[in-house]
């Protein structure tokens, strides 16, 4: 339990650093550390597969691409272009809305009974695979089709139009 609080503190701390660091590259690096703490959370919950997949997909692939894009940007310019006051007002309003929602959500919280997992090994690869391919087969396949269509769409977007050349 103490370990959980320590890791939770770390994840909140690093996610705050993601927001507050000026340099976008630092932001991405802190985001990677945040994802790492998430992986630790998953391991604490005995969800090894999820932890490793989070590790590979988010830390190993998506964040590499983020970093890749950020490195190509010219970050030497420290000055941000001045935003118009309309944008600022819109930002304040939307931020307040989010705050209101969060406060409302927190207010309506009540302490639930501690959930006890019937099967502690539910997060292991074998059990997860069985669940995915039996109970949740349809959502699983549908999501794969969704990803596939996204892939085809991106390839189509990236491809040059042969008529225009």
């Amino acid at each position: 339990m103490n370990l959980f609080y320590f890791v939770a503190f770390l994840s909140i701390f690093f996610s705050l650093l993601v927001i507050f660091s000026k340099n976008p590259v630092y932001s991405v690096l802190f985001l990677i550390v945040t994802f790492f703490t998430f992986s630790v959370h998953y391991i604490l919950l005995n969800a090894q597969f999820l932890a490793i997949v989070n590790f590979i997909v988010y830390m190993g692939a998506i964040m590499v691409l983020f970093l890749f894009v950020l490195m190509l940007l010219n970050l030497n310019k420290d000055t941000e272009p001045m935003k118009s006051s309309l944008l600022k007002i819109a930002g304040v309003v939307s931020g307040l809305c989010l705050l209101l929602t969060l406060v409302g959500a927190v207010k309506s919280l009540n302490v639930s009974e501690p959930l006890i997992l019937k099967d502690p090994g539910i997060g292991l690869v074998k059990n997860l695979g069985k669940v995915l391919f039996n109970e949740f087969l349809l959502p699983f396949e549908v999501s794969s089709i969704l990803l596939f269509s996204a892939m085809v769409g991106s390839v189509l977007l990236a491809k040059k139009d042969p008529k225009k050349i």
Partner: peptide
Amino acid sequence: DINVGILYIFGVVSLGVYGIMIGGW
């Protein structure tokens, strides 16, 4: 002997690029 051994190696390999990227940048 974790039961996701191959995935672990895979994750470590995918992290390996960060050293190069951070150092290069």
